[in-house]
Simulated scan of single mutants.
Amino acid sequence: MNELFYDAAPNATRVAPERPGPRQYPAKPREVILFGTCVVDLFFPEAGLDAIRLLEREGIRVHFPEGQSCCGQPAWTSGYAAEAREVARAQLAVLDAGMPVVVPSGSCAGMFRQHYRELFAEEPDTLKRVASLAERTFELTEFLLNVCQVEWKDLGEPTRIALHTSCSARREMNTHLHARELLGKLANVERVDHDHESECCGFGGTFSVRMPEVSGAMVTDKTQSLMASGADEMVTADGGCLMNINGSLDKQQQAFRGRHLASFLWERVSGEGRA
């Protein structure tokens, strides 16, 4: 069997990820850590900066540890458990400061909150640190909505947008619900539904590399649905999906595009995107 398709620690204890349930949200903190994610850092750095601007606008001091890198999800979902643990251990070290950790990606936040428990199931002492990180981890829209409890004045022109949330973000962090409610606070934004909203865009990390034909067919269905929705643009809080969808649109020579939700939100509340 190809090593990409089996768990590198086949005898390890398996801990099934939990469906997200109600959380007890803390009061708005004075300081947070932003975990930027490797995709945002490499491909959408402006989205990371816009996430910082949104948090600073709420009076929060944002720390960005330089030692952060990847959450370990690509290695984990490809079956390389040992390598994923090595990456995850490095992230635990830089996120151990006790502050809330805000992540502009539901899939990476879900990795912290759900899958680190399985990664370190054989290490009881490490599990204590994992539990602390899980409790302190918030996806960006979740944090703005339920911790900061933002009330915004929409400074943008009327627009219609379609929302895309990654499969794992929907299952593990309820990101689609948080984003919908947050977008609903913007008076000049109309969110339109599209037929394939709950379906995968075909990225799936290394899935798109291992099965390019299947991935390509999935993203074609997704882009066609987005363009048929009547939306002016698509927004998403997942950089991998954004890269995949925009890449397909570019290949199809379509003008329709998506962008990161953090940048869309910052434009609406700051007015910087106004003509």
Rank of each mutant, 00 (worst) to 15 (best):
V269H: 09
L140V: 05
D50W: 09
M111E: 03
Q149R: 11
D250R: 10
D96A: 13
F5R: 07
G36E: 12
L265V: 07
E56Q: 15
G240S: 09
G271I: 08
M1K: 14
Q73I: 15
A109E: 06
N146D: 15
A81H: 14
H260F: 01
D154N: 10
L49N: 11
M99Y: 13
S270N: 09
K153V: 11
F5I: 03
T223E: 04
A47G: 00
L54H: 04
F264D: 01
G230C: 06
R170Q: 09
T77D: 05
Q253L: 11
G36Q: 14
A27R: 01
E118C: 05
M111R: 07
S198V: 12
S107K: 00
I245H: 02
F43M: 13
P158D: 06
E66S: 07
C201V: 03
T175S: 11
E151F: 03
E56I: 12
A16I: 15
F207Y: 13
A93E: 12
H63F: 09
E58G: 02
A134S: 14
E233L: 15
V209L: 15
E157V: 13
F256R: 01
F203C: 12
P158M: 00
T137K: 00
N2F: 12
A217F: 04
A121G: 13
V235S: 03
L265F: 02
I33E: 04
L119Q: 04
R136Y: 05
F64M: 11
L42I: 12
V269K: 02
E135T: 13
D41G: 05
P158A: 04
M243D: 09
F5M: 08
P65I: 04
C148L: 05
E118S: 12
